[in-house]
């Protein structure tokens, strides 16, 4: 089954076209890494798909339906830096926010909702921090709270914007275990990812993006030195001995 289908999508930021001719299909039950250089339009792509950024042209469908009909089946984890962590609230409360769409208008979150949120926090190893003011959490802990909030939504399709940026090793591991579990349950997950070294370990599918789709498919087929070079246009600076794309550095 196709979880997400994108056809000829184009989007502009101010005067510049940042995405053009973007077309791809994501099969349900896959874990896909969206990889590309800075300014490639990765975040813009996610925002455009979710209707948070205006698109110039093209069409998007989720499980064969337009966004409006399936909003409840879609979960979104924004970049950690996109919110104000000084906001007067605690970790549990932030996770409960993931349920606001289901709770509906004029109703207050019940004990059952809070219990559900607590379970999600527990799953991310954050149960002890439930009552902690969010500004008092470390970067990794904040990211876990964000992930717990996505879990509690119990969506079928998740979009995550750089969930592994600036987190500690333990958090990275916890998050990846969670993502694998989601996949095992048949959920579909799209992750914007910046660290080329871990792509092969983490994702079964890769979408190479630089303003348009350079390549998309199974990791072993697509994540090749040639295609990476094409995506990064020789600007690749990362290197690691023994890695397949080490020789690409500064051609």
């Amino acid at each position: 089954m196709v979880a997400l289908s994108v056809k000829d999508l184009a989007a502009a930021y101010r005067k510049n076209v940042v995405l053009h001719d973007v077309s791809f299909e994501i099969k349900a039950g896959t874990l896909t890494g969206i990889v590309g250089p800075n300014g490639a339009g990765k975040s813009t792509l996610i925002k455009s798909l979710l209707g948070l950024h205006p698109i110039l042209s093209g069409s998007v469908s989720f499980f064969g339906s337009p966004l409006e009909k399936v909003k409840k089946r879609i979960g979104y984890v924004p970049q950690r830096g996109s919110v104000d962590w000084d906001f007067p609230t605690d970790a549990l409360d932030v996770v409960t926010m993931g349920l606001y769409g289901q709770i509906g208008w004029l109703k207050w979150p019940s004990k059952r909702h809070r219990q559900k949120a607590l379970e999600a926090l527990d799953k991310m190893g954050m149960a002890d921090y439930a009552q902690r003011q969010i500004s008092q959490l470390s970067g990794g802990q904040q990211q876990r709270v964000f992930l717990a909030r996505a879990l509690v939504q119990d969506a079928d399709l998740y979009f995550m914007d750089e969930p592994l940026a600036g987190v500690d090793a333990a958090t990275e591991k916890a998050i990846m275990i969670t993502l694998q579990e989601l996949k095992a349950k048949g959920k579909t997950v799209l992750v914007v990812h910046h660290d080329l070294e871990t792509v092969e370990d983490y994702f079964d599918h890769v979408l190479l993006l630089n303003r348009t789709v350079i390549a998309h498919g199974k990791t072993e087929e697509v994540f090749t030195p040639e295609l990476i070079a094409k995506t990064y246009g020789g600007r690749l600076k990362l290197t690691k001995e023994g890695m397949g794309y080490g020789h690409l550095v500064k051609q």
Binding site: L50, L52, V83, D84, F87, D93, M97, Y100, G101, W105
Partner: peptide, 22 residues
């Protein structure tokens, strides 16, 4: 009071709120 949770989520994380259909 009526829109307490909506005020909270749209103030804290408008992007998430929009993706939830608020």
């Amino acid at each position: 009071l009526l829109f307490y949770k909506e005020w909270k989520i749209t103030s804290f994380d408008p992007a998430l709120a929009a993706s939830l259909g608020i």
